[in-house]
Design a protein around this nucleic acid. Sequence first.
DNA 1: CTCGAAGTATGACTACTGTCAAACTATGGC
DNA 2: GCCATAGTTTGACAGTAGTCATACTTCGAG
Lengths: 100, 100
Amino acid sequence: MARAPQHPEVSEFELQQVLEAIVDPVRRSIVQQLDAAGHDIKCGDFDIAVHKSTATHHFKVLREAGLIRQYYVGTSRLNALRRDDLDKAFPGLLDALAVG
Amino acid sequence: MARAPQHPEVSEFELQQVLEAIVDPVRRSIVQQLDAAGHDIKCGDFDIAVHKSTATHHFKVLREAGLIRQYYVGTSRLNALRRDDLDKAFPGLLDALAVG
DNA sequence: CTCGAAGTATGACTACTGTCAAACTATGGC
DNA sequence: GCCATAGTTTGACAGTAGTCATACTTCGAG
């Protein structure tokens, strides 16, 4: 289990990578659940219809694109939406996605 | 050659389909060129690095998602960005994409 | 210290999608 | 009528991405 997962800086965000991340319905759902909740969510507490290992893959894609920040609390991994960072890099993008 | 290509109504727009359309770099480039130009552009006048038949495919995807409107003038096919319709369906989305 | 819970890593499989080539269609000009 | 031009259609192919199963690691509880 990686103790300190890699997170890109805002300056490193790439639109192409962000779009590829959110185009997947499962990942977009994860982002929307985080946005709607307004608080961080454990990997296991999301409402997604895929296998655990598949979920891990999706979280990794979201993290590497800069959409979420992940950190451990005990054996659980918590996920936070990087709203401020995303608004800085791509103003309006997140809001436009929340609609659908 | 289809004389009257199908275009979806604004009410039929689907975010998933729009995202799948613009996630492709070639297609996003087409949208950005249309946006930057401010006027309609012939299929053959875009600056894209793919074969003619591949371009046809991309235009079709963009059209069916509702991003562009196509109409014939002689043997040429002109492409128009459906900015107003998109702003209605997904406010802020197009602007957020123009940034990158 | 042992066990269960939470998540990760790896490998295999499938399906989709972007790509090109070649043949075809439709329009306008000569 | 003929030909060049613009774009479409069809088929084939390669690469990639989402998926699951299995095995593994790490942490907390008892």
